[in-house]
């Protein structure tokens, strides 16, 4: 039917383009985070105040670094066409995302928001938390698509690839966040 033929015609970008162009929104999100991180030096003083939840900060960072394993595993499986396996890795990353969101919320209030450091900490971590919510939704979408309509998942594998790339960015951003807000 003509309309069915029209669909691929009206979204003809090849996988290479869809994955390559995803770099641009990721770049924007990275620059935006850099703006927050730099603001920490404007408002947060020159040292880390006493009372930050260092244990939670280290714990979340270790968790994110450990998530590189399933992330790279998902990438490899997608490259080899093992979609079902990649979906399993997505489930692990979804658990990590939920833990990260909960962990971020638990660190709020360690330093009062009315102080310079507390304000920029809460707003920046809240913003990164929104990225995790976005990542979680992306993972969930790919997970459900893979379970319910594997064929569509296969035809649009670039979506899953971009979700994995985004997770890579989350790892980088959280690590940078930890360095900027807990160590410097």
């Amino acid at each position: 039917m003509a309309v069915e033929m029209a669909r691929p015609l009206m979204d003809p970008a090849p996988e290479r383009a869809k994955r390559g162009a995803f770099f641009f929104p990721m770049m924007f999100m990275g620059i935006l985070s850099a703006a927050w991180f730099l603001a920490r030096f404007m408002w947060g003083g020159t040292s880390v105040p006493k009372g930050v939840d260092m244990g939670m900060g280290i714990g979340l960072t270790v968790l994110m670094l450990l998530s590189i394993g399933p992330m790279l595993g998902a990438r490899g499986k997608l490259n080899r066409g093992e979609d079902a396996g990649a979906i399993g890795n997505f489930a692990i990353l979804m658990v990590v995302a939920i833990l990260m969101i909960a962990g971020i919320i638990s660190t709020w209030g360690a330093i009062p928001i009315g102080t310079g450091y507390g304000g920029i900490y809460d707003v920046t971590s809240g913003w990164i938390g929104l990225y995790f919510v976005g990542g979680l939704l992306g993972l969930l979408a790919s997970f459900m698509k893979g379970k319910r309509v594997p064929e569509r998942f296969r035809n649009e594998r670039w979506v899953a690839h971009n979700v994995v790339s985004f997770w890579g960015e989350l790892v980088l951003l959280w690590t940078a966040f930890f360095v900027v807000f807990y160590l410097l």
Binding site: W43, I113, G114, T115, G116, G119, I120, D122, V123
Partner: peptide, 14 residues
């Protein structure tokens, strides 16, 4: 954030 969350980025002591 200064208006709804009580931070002090542009107003107040900090």
């Amino acid at each position: 954030s200064d208006m709804i969350l009580g931070s002090h980025f542009y107003t107040g002591p900090t």
